[in-house]
Amino acid sequence: MHSERTPWALRLAAYGGLAFLHFPLLVIFAYAFNTEESAFSFPLQGFTLHWFSDAWARPDIFAAIVLSLKVATAATVLALALGTLAAMALSRRPFFGKNAITLLLVLPIALPGIITGISLLTAFKVADINPGLLTIIVGHATFCVVVVYNNVVARLRRMPMSHIEASMDLGADSWQTFRHIVMPGLATSLLAGGMLAFALSFDEIIVTTFTAGAEVTLPIWLLNQLGRPRDVPITNVVAMTVMLITTLPILGAWYLTRDTTDTAGGGK
């Protein structure tokens, strides 16, 4: 006999999987409010907000957050400009080498971060560029561009060529057509792509390790904390903050493109 209801075993497995994925996050959330100082002891000792004020008072945390925000913003802006241009160039007429260029463009998202990181570092050394803010931004832009590109190219494919022709036909030059017809059509896909790019950049660690030099972004700061067990509660507070900052834009991107089917490039 067929039933509309999902078999209980399947439901159990599904919810079990979700719990398995998210339980560690909950642990971090919970222990950010725990009164005890050192380890993850159970049960929780009591509720406190004082780790938040501690974290807020630490200049190294503040500096790391500011640096990460700077990097993410710059990489996103760079990715929006380059990704859109690349999508416009590659979405219409075929030309010699088009597939090769598309592949090269999308490659950074498939390539292990450690390869991207090492090759960028080598390239920077060869070019005699000192690692710092600029190199982190460039490193992040390599994969942020892909996210924007994927979103924009999907939208362009669904935008009828006749709209652009109609605009030109009515007397608009290329720039006016881009501004009045193409941009409004791309707006939500740019927003979605930009938010994903921002979130990706904000918690990126592997490429950053190679390109940061002496700079400490938030994820690197967190990694360094592993060696300092006395700081665990503060680390928990910061980890929670990172999660919130990166989750909100991704939720936003999902919300803005939920009635389209092309929020591409979530996979890094």
Partner: peptide, 10 residues
């Protein structure tokens, strides 16, 4: 000016 087959309204 052109009237398009699919109208091409913005």
């Amino acid at each position: 000016n052109t009237v398009f087959q699919d109208y091409a309204l913005f």
